[in-house]
């Protein structure tokens, strides 16, 4: 499946992309190993898609170096693309063709025979649970079905590396969970994948390792657990006050936690023991409208690193 050597599937050093005067990707370093599920977590405009397009050899590198599957995208684009699976941020399905035909012709682009392409299309439609829709037009499919079809299409050449750019953005929760389940299976089968997302739960569930991207740069790197341990406390106490109580409350929060973040609608108190902190809040005579104790997430990591939330 992957190359026998242990060289990284993707290696980027000082990778930079400029569009005119604007810098979309600003000297980032990362590498992805075979068998890994690697993520780019960051808000809109962070430079995730641009990075994915450079890896996918459809966007020339402005500066720095990039190696994909041991080759140079500048000179080996077609050979690299032959071994990649691509799920772009925007679906690019052909609405004039049926579900099955979309896969068939895509297999042909990779020089598969019609027979081979048909066999794989059948298996893949089964895998993404679209077998019943094989002969249907693409247009009436739901957003989640289309996304699954694009994933099936990206697998038709049995790629060494699957690139997923925001695989579940815009889908309802049920469709997202179905998709996560399929992606998790791929991961279990040992398919190497790189995904971008601005959903911290998606990154936590699917990524072995990820980088947090903000404003064209990488601001942190690690496993989801490791990042949380490093940049957040174990628990978070969320407090919401009535607007008229807010000013008075804020003055009394000092010393209750290792760190306190103030969001427009609530306070986040970072502490190892959220319940203990909640008791203390009560003892100080504060009466918040809402009290919630939860585990820290990558959202908290992002907030810590950038002072902003992932989804504005």
């Amino acid at each position: 499946m992957s190359s026998p050597t242990s060289e990284p599937l993707v290696l980027a050093r000082g990778l930079t992309k400029r569009f005119g005067a604007a810098t979309a990707v600003d000297g980032i370093d990362f590498q992805v190993a075979a068998g890994e599920a690697f993520g780019f977590l960051g808000p809109n405009g962070a430079g995730k898609t641009t990075t994915m397009r450079m890896i996918g050899c459809v966007s020339p590198v402005t500066d720095g170096s990039l190696t994909v599957l041991g080759m140079d995208p500048r000179t080996d684009g077609p050979r690299i693309r032959a071994r990649l699976g691509v799920v772009p941020q925007q679906d690019s399905l052909d609405t004039e063709l049926t579900v099955e035909e979309n896969l068939l012709i895509y297999g042909r682009y990779f020089d598969l025979s019609y027979r081979e392409s048909r066999t794989r299309a059948k298996e893949l439609l089964d895998f993404v649970q679209l077998t019943e829709r094989a002969q249907d037009a693409v247009e009436p499919l739901s957003g989640g079905m289309k996304r699954r079809l694009v994933i099936a299409r990206g697998l038709i050449n049995q790629p060494d590396l699957l690139l997923l750019d925001e695989p579940t953005t815009g889908l309802d929760p049920q469709a997202r969970h179905l998709l996560w389940d399929r992606l998790y299976r791929l991961k279990q089968q040992g398919v190497s994948l790189i995904l971008t997302t601005h959903y911290m739960d998606e990154a936590e569930q699917l990524c072995d390792r990820l980088v947090v991207m903000d404003k064209a740069r990488i601001v942190a790197e690690g496993s989801p657990r490791g990042l949380i341990d490093q940049y957040a406390t174990r628990e978070v106490l969320e407090l919401r006050f009535r607007p008229e109580d807010q000013a008075a409350a804020e003055a009394q929060l000092g010393g209750l936690a290792e760190r306190i973040e103030r969001l427009p609608d609530r306070y986040l108190l970072y502490t190892t023991d959220g319940d203990a902190a909640a008791v203390e809040v009560h003892e100080r005579g504060l009466r918040p409208d809402q009290v919630l104790v939860r585990r820290s997430t990558l959202e908290d990591v992002f907030l810590r690193l950038t002072g902003r939330t992932l989804i504005e």
Partner: peptide, 11 residues
């Protein structure tokens, strides 16, 4: 439809 984008992410 982004047909051509789909084509050019292959060889």
């Amino acid at each position: 439809n982004r047909i051509y984008q789909a084509m050019t992410s292959t060889p």
